[in-house]
């Protein structure tokens, strides 16, 4: 379970351009559930997601992961948690051009020091799961938008994270691919993973497998968590 206690995030604090992106957010995100953070642009969805995913620190407040307080952790411990616990799927696939699909997928696992041969088997298995086996040796420049998105999903799963974080994942996908994406999310849920998605796409937050929708506006949660 992820618990946020009185989380605030202020950018450019003390400057004339000071902006408060999150204001006293209290939230519990249940394990093995699909949670959608919904809200208009600028509501603080991505900021909240980046704090939950240990990619940034709050200005005040604490975040607990399975009861363990993680906001105070020194950077090297945080990196370890980020690497092993979270899988990130971004709005853009953010694949590295010039190297193959397989190498892109294997990349986040390199710091963990797993044997390359085993890693390769794991990556090929992941690609196979999303019907991308034939593209393993292709360069990422040659992929379609949907294929690139699926490759980024396989990459997010390479370290077998317990929590998948997806930031506006369907923003650049057409309807068919968006449905395909939600099918993949359903599969994650069935596997017992926790999924947190930010989106203002009805196709996402109205999907049947979504357990909870959290509405954000002006850095605050509009309705109290259930």
């Amino acid at each position: 379970m992820i618990e946020l206690v009185n989380v605030k995030k202020v950018f450019n604090a003390g400057n004339p351009s000071e902006f408060s992106a999150l204001n006293s957010v209290n939230l519990c995100i249940a394990e093995n559930h699909v949670t959608v953070l919904k809200g208009p642009s600028g509501s603080g969805k991505t900021t909240l997601l980046s704090i939950v995913g240990c990619m940034s620190r709050p200005s005040a407040g604490r975040v607990k992961l399975n009861g363990r307080e993680i906001t105070s952790l020194p950077e090297r411990f945080l990196t370890d948690i980020r690497r092993k616990t979270f899988g990130f799927i971004f709005q853009q696939p953010n694949l590295i051009k010039g190297i193959s699909v397989l190498e892109n997928v294997m990349l986040p696992a390199y710091p963990l020091g797993e044997k390359r041969s085993q890693l390769r088997i794991k990556a090929l298995h992941g690609l196979n799961e999303l019907n991308l086996s034939s593209k393993a040796n292709a360069k990422v420049e040659w992929l379609s938008g949907g294929e690139a998105q699926r490759v980024s999903i396989v990459r997010a799963l390479i370290n077998d994270p317990g929590i998948i974080i997806a930031d506006e994942p369907t923003a650049h996908l057409d309807t068919k691919l968006s449905y395909r994406f939600m099918e993949i999310i359903e599969k994650f849920k069935a596997e017992g993973k926790t999924v947190i998605i930010t989106s203002h796409d009805p196709l996402v937050y109205e999907a049947a497998m979504v357990d909870r929708v959290v509405n954000l506006r002006d850095g605050r949660i509009e309705d109290m968590p259930a």
């Binding site: 009185n6 709050p58 020194p74």
Partner: peptide, 17 residues
């Protein structure tokens, strides 16, 4: 105070690093 989530505590945590 490591238990506190105050702005000052979080600033100290960042700065000590």
């Amino acid at each position: 105070d490591i238990q506190s989530g105050d702005e000052l505590q979080l600033t100290l945590e960042r700065k000590t690093y």
